[in-house]
């Protein structure tokens, strides 16, 4: 009896004609240039940019020379004004030091109790004071402002 109730079994089989082939083949991206073209392009671009660079380089050199010319032309006028103001300021500094150390016995301006900084030079020789001495009597704000420019550059 068991045979009479058997359901017809269907075996899982490939479709008629077989499976499609598996697409394992590599599909490369579309190449716009060949290797030789790329080399040629690189060389061409380099040459072109060197050409442009040279043109701009010469222009910049010329501009720099012109700018330097202008600066040198006005430099004497600026330096003359600076010198006068500098000498005035030195006198102010010296007076300020004399006023500050008035009560200290034995103190001489510009020296350490009469001992000069530079002993072998003539007394009237010009020595530029360093930044810290020049700004010693100034406001701390002015000091910082100048120090940021002078000591860090």
């Amino acid at each position: 009896m068991a045979e009479a109730f058997q359901v017809a079994k269907k075996q899982d089989l490939p479709p008629p004609g077989g499976y499609k082939p598996i697409p394992f083949k590599r599909i490369p991206a579309k190449s716009y240039f060949s290797g030789y073209t790329m080399f040629a392009g690189f060389i061409g671009m380099t040459i072109g940019s060197i050409y442009l660079y040279n043109i701009t380089y010469k222009r910049i050199l010329k501009d720099e020379i012109e700018m330097r010319s202008a600066k040198m032309a006005i430099y004497p006028a600026l330096l003359a004004e600076r010198d006068r103001e500098y000498l005035k300021q030195l006198r102010r500094n010296r007076d300020a030091e004399a006023e500050l150390m008035r009560d200290v016995p034995g103190w001489e301006v510009g020296t350490y109790y009469g001992e000069r900084v530079y002993k072998l030079i003539p007394p009237d020789q010009w020595v530029e004071p360093i930044f810290q001495e020049y700004y010693a009597h100034s406001d701390i704000k002015e000091w910082n402002k100048r120090a940021n420019i002078k000591l860090l550059s």
């Binding site: 202008a70 006005i74 006028a77 004004e81 006068r84 103001e85 000498l87 005035k88 030195l90 006198r91 500094n93 010296r94 030091e97 004399a98 001489e108 301006v109 510009g110 020296t111 000069r116 900084v117 530079y118 007394p123 009237d124 020789q125 010009w126 020595v127 530029e128 004071p129 001495e133 020049y134 010693a136």
Partner: peptide, 29 residues
């Protein structure tokens, strides 16, 4: 300061003249 009392510094009156009161662009021009 290294500037001692022996160092001659000109008086302010010697140093005061009319200065060039112009801006940068004017000077450059």
């Amino acid at each position: 300061m290294v500037v001692t009392a022996d160092v001659y510094l000109p008086e302010d009156s010697e140093l005061t003249v009319q200065e060039v009161n112009l801006s940068g662009s004017t000077l450059y021009a």
